[in-house]
């Protein structure tokens, strides 16, 4: 009895291992281009940067090993802390506000309303527009003397500001642009999530006499948590890496720069303007660790609020 069982198992294993080898070959062949490409263009560069963070790499590629010096300097660098704070404020404001607005618009559009397609198209327009063009037009709208925003405010007797050049407002102005340009994109994803919700839940709730608001919070939101999870993870990662908008909207010699520059911007400035690539690499390693931690927390807390059907 025992013996026979063992026999069939070995046969089985033999058969499998042939198939297995075949599987392995195909699998490695098929992942080869992407794996190789990612290794050459992304993973190797990452380790190279990691290495550089322990050197004093400056102009033109000469460097010497300096150990932890860059990291020590980083801890004492107020600019790094300020940049971290800026990045956190940017993320904490732009992501939740942006996502809430996206949910709101998606919910409004999901109420069997006429003109759904038109609205969706209009709201999505910023997502297909180049960040460079977006930054250009917003800078113009924000312009202190000739901007549309200040002239509208003036109608209501509100004093205009230098929205992107005043250190007190610049970061918030950038955040508004960030929200403006991502709401439509996230809305489309969330709306699709809502449209997949099964009617039956709602019918059951209607029998119980639930109102629109109750249905929204008790049914819709829980049902779309997987979508919301995805949107949140992606938005957080993107927000922590913000660069383009700040680079394009804030003048380099503005006093608002210190109050708006993100960690990635600081990296860019140290690496390309101040020619301190070693130190800049240390900057970006910190950012990497932060993003790693946030993503980890996100995935860990996933069970608490994300409901998969």
């Amino acid at each position: 009895m025992k013996r026979r069982d063992k026999n069939t198992r070995t046969r089985h294993v033999n058969h499998l291992s042939n198939k297995r080898l075949n599987d392995w070959m195909w699998a490695y062949l098929m992942i080869f281009p992407t794996t190789a490409g990612l290794f050459v263009f992304y993973i190797y560069p990452f380790f190279q940067s990691f290495f550089y963070s322990f050197t004093d790499l400056g102009s033109f590629g000469q460097y010497a090993w300096v150990g932890l010096q860059n990291y020590v300097r980083l801890v004492g660098d107020t600019e790094v802390w300020q940049a971290l704070l800026n990045t956190v404020i940017y993320t904490v404001l732009s992501v939740p506000v942006g996502i809430c607005l996206s949910i709101l618009i998606a919910a409004l559009l999901n109420s069997k309303i006429k003109g759904l397609g038109t609205y969706r198209t209009l709201y999505f327009l910023p997502a297909v527009t180049m960040p460079v063009a977006i930054a250009m037009v917003w800078r113009w709208l924000y312009n202190m003397d000739y901007g549309l925003i200040n002239s509208i405010l003036e109608r209501f007797s509100i004093e205009g500001r230098a929205w992107v050049s005043d250190p007190k407002f610049a970061l918030y102005s950038v955040i508004i642009v960030a929200i403006w340009s991502t709401v439509g994109y996230n809305m489309v994803i969330i709306l699709a999530g809502m449209q997949q919700c099964s009617r039956t839940y709602y019918e059951a709730a209607e029998i119980d006499g639930a109102g629109t608001i109750t249905k929204f919070f008790k049914i819709t939101i829980p049902l779309i948590t997987p979508t919301l999870f995805f949107v949140t993870v992606m938005s957080l990662i993107r927000a922590f890496q913000v660069f383009d908008t700040i680079y394009l909207m804030i003048e380099r010699n503005s006093t608002a720069l210190e109050r708006t520059q993100s960690l990635v911007y600081l990296y860019y400035r140290n690496a390309f303007i101040l020619h301190e690539k070693g130190y800049a690499s240390a900057n970006v390693m910190v950012l990497f660790v932060i993003i790693l931690i946030i993503t980890y927390i996100q995935f860990k807390s996933q069970n608490k609020w994300v409901h998969y059907e």
Binding site: Y28, F240, V264, Y267, Y268
Partner: peptide
């Protein structure tokens, strides 16, 4: 769709690229 050795490890390594700010490269 295929089982092969080191699959999870390789996949995780590739996925970690997503976490790295693009400017680093």
């Amino acid at each position: 769709r295929i089982e092969f050795p080191a699959k999870e490890t390789i996949f995780l390594i590739l996925l970690s690229v997503l976490m790295v700010p693009g400017q680093i490269f």
